[in-house]
Design a binder for these strands. Sequence first.
DNA 1: GCCGAGTATCGAACGACGTTCCACAGTAGA
DNA 2: TCTACTGTGGAACGTCGTTCGATACTCGGC
Lengths: 237, 237
Amino acid sequence: MTRPRPRPADRPTRERRRASHSLEAVLTAAVALLDEAGESALTLRALASRLGTGVGSIYWYVSGKDDLLDRAIDYVLGGVLTADDWRTVSDDPVDDLRGMAVALFEAVVDRPWLGSRFMRGIDAPSNTLRLYEELGQQALRLDLTPRQRFHAVSAVVGVVVSNAVDLGQDPPEAVLDGSVDRDEFLGRYAETWRALDPAEYPFVHDIVDEFDGHDDREQFLAALDLTLAGLRLQAGR
Amino acid sequence: MTRPRPRPADRPTRERRRASHSLEAVLTAAVALLDEAGESALTLRALASRLGTGVGSIYWYVSGKDDLLDRAIDYVLGGVLTADDWRTVSDDPVDDLRGMAVALFEAVVDRPWLGSRFMRGIDAPSNTLRLYEELGQQALRLDLTPRQRFHAVSAVVGVVVSNAVDLGQDPPEAVLDGSVDRDEFLGRYAETWRALDPAEYPFVHDIVDEFDGHDDREQFLAALDLTLAGLRLQAGR
DNA sequence: GCCGAGTATCGAACGACGTTCCACAGTAGA
DNA sequence: TCTACTGTGGAACGTCGTTCGATACTCGGC
């Protein structure tokens, strides 16, 4: 789990009577902007123009861009909590933990802009904390000390985060067809790697074929399974 | 390992005759700025004024801020490669891998601004790739398929990266005494967690004491050891 | 029916940033 | 000395996040 940051004072939750623009509308538009063109597309001006309003209005609902992003992320994380594939129940807690981690990862694949800010907002009432809790409830079923549990869940979240950071990196510059471009892109790197001295770079040569055209999902699953195997061992399963 | 990004064309490596400002000077000043006041302090104007020059000059050595940051990171990573604690030799490859991962993590603790960009620049001649290679050479000593090796090293790098991202997050806003402030900070979060309904948040209650005042290093080591335990299992060690 | 306090909207303006551009200076070879 | 190249420096441009004050709209109390 990530280190928390202080959140600016929330607007008092008084019920709003005239909500032509609501916080939800702001968040929806922000997420739409992010989905369409990535993190750099989310500017206060672009958001205001999409909402048909002025920049100043946004600051009524949100204390700043940081807050906006945090809320947008927590907003989409709420969708993960209510998805169907979330919360599988088996008799193996580690399997269930794995299922949740995969569901979390899938959410990131769909929205790579979640990127590095992913899983930061662990304020008391938030979907992020709820996610963390439900992950942890599986760990609760394992024979571990609280400290081991804390570390185990942090480790699993860490695997998702590190792969999310990967995915969050802006692609070359092509908005066009994702797959073909990506393979070409990886291929160009593989090419330069193959040109290295094999005596100096034996490992790079050993894995260059695996790197070339590798699947992010597979890489994530491999890392996850290594961690879970370690966890199984620790829990005596 | 992280997805590579295209790097702008390098300046031709013609030997420079009058190097009042060299690329090295630029990088040294940039790193100093980052170390003193974090990532947000590295602006082209601040860097220029520290070098006693104009902003335009910096663009002679570096193609932009992205390139500058990537080079600065690769620059400090060069120090890791030549450090004493790097590259321990034992008869257990996993132990050696662990030592390297820890050394890498220590470098990040010292310079939290490495943050999320950490381990991105895997261009052909770079310290990052060299780091990756040397990590991989330990995996080469294990009885694994190339694909397993690729995934194993990626997983280990991932553990370091995810904890680096954590550390890279800007602290509350205090530049002052790090430890006391941090404990207070964690404590405030722990407080709100303890106020949650134990029936709804059993896991959070279970681990809140562990979270309160937890050590980042310990958390990293726990995650690393889970991954390495899984790796040991996979390699039949 | 009016009024002041809270709720909400909007866009001009500010300062900081990354980047571009171009005028200029020093140096090396012809 | 001339010329081409390597390097320097800072004004200027456009965009960004943020602040501010003017302007409504809405409601409970008089």
